Amino acid sequence: MRNSIEIAQYIKKIRERKGLSAVELANRVGVTKGTISRYESGTRKIPMDDIPKFASVLDISPVDILIESRDEPVEINSTKYPYYPIGISAGLPLCIDSIDENNVEYISIPDNLMGKWAGRKDIFMMRINGDSMNRIMPHDSLIAVRPVPLSNLRDGDIVVYSDGGDYAVKRFYRREDKVIFRPDSSDLSFTDYVTSADNIDLRIHGKVVLYIAELD
């Protein structure tokens, strides 16, 4: 059975895992934030009569709080990233009004999935919609995008770009005064999107550095 400090630390761990602040937990249990802080710091014991309240709020069993299980899941570190809930076209460029802070949400991704990109503050997440990149990334893949200056892009890099209000994800190529966005698809009906390097409406939003796909 856990001691009083271990009980408090377990409740804190579950609170944080569920994305609850100390204030939110206090309000739901019916105590003050200061009381929660004293519980979690170990300066005050949680009354046994209150354990069922914490269990109910955290959607766990009182037994889970009181008794350590050998089957408790291993803690997995995750990071929250800005997520734009807009399907970026992997087909013909798709007209979208804007991609800005008004659209942003946040999504938590396990660090072991993000690999060397885990925790990066300059990464944002999107989804692709369509099959023009399906040799690499299937439809509905979650993509991690990192802003990169145009001068740092290399031929063949996968980028998210827009031309006016038209957004898409394609491979990037530069040919003198032309910029070419090329599909990488098993469907040969998809063709290049070509524009001038001087196009003032052209914007490269970033390079795709990683994708996460659910396989059938």
Rank of each mutant, 00 (worst) to 15 (best):
R203N: 09
E214G: 09
M133P: 05
K121E: 07
A90E: 06
D131F: 11
S56Y: 09
R203S: 07
S162G: 11
L202R: 08
S108D: 12
P183A: 09
L92M: 15
L202N: 00
I99K: 04
S162L: 13
D177L: 03
V63P: 03
S61G: 00
N199Y: 00
I212N: 03
I67Q: 02
N199I: 03
G119R: 04
R182V: 11
E75I: 13
I212W: 03
I14D: 00
Y211K: 03
N129P: 01
V159A: 08
S185F: 10
N129D: 10
I88D: 01
N152H: 13
F181L: 14
P85W: 08
I5Y: 13
T191W: 08
H139P: 02
D64Q: 01
S4A: 13
I158C: 04
R175Q: 09
M133H: 11
R203I: 10
R120I: 00
R44L: 05
E101Y: 08
L66G: 01
A8D: 07
P62Q: 07
L66I: 05
D187W: 13
T35E: 14
V57R: 00
I88P: 00
I96D: 04
A144H: 09
S141Y: 05
V160T: 09
K178W: 10
D50A: 12
S108Q: 13
D131W: 10
R203F: 06
L188K: 15
Y83K: 04
P93C: 11
E68M: 10
T32G: 14
D140Y: 09
G87F: 10
Y84I: 00
L202Q: 07
M133A: 05
P93N: 12
T32E: 06
S61K: 05
D198G: 01
L188E: 15
A168C: 11
D49S: 12
D64R: 00
Y84P: 00
G115P: 02
D184N: 12
V29F: 06
E24V: 00
Y167G: 06
D187A: 13
I212F: 02
S69F: 02
K18E: 06
S69G: 09
Y83W: 13
R146W: 13
G87Y: 05
A168S: 14
K207H: 04
N77L: 06
I200S: 11
L25W: 02
E101P: 07
K178D: 09
I36Y: 01
G87V: 07
K80F: 07
D131S: 14
S162C: 13
R135E: 13
R127T: 14
S186V: 03
S37N: 15
R146T: 09
H205P: 04
F181H: 08
D140G: 03
R127V: 10
V57G: 02
N77D: 07
I200K: 14
D192C: 10
G130P: 07
P147I: 06
P62V: 05
D111T: 07
N27K: 15
A118M: 01
A55L: 05
S186N: 10
L92F: 08
V179M: 09
K53I: 01
G30T: 04
T191F: 08
G130F: 12
D216G: 14
G87D: 09
N27S: 14
D163G: 06
K33L: 06
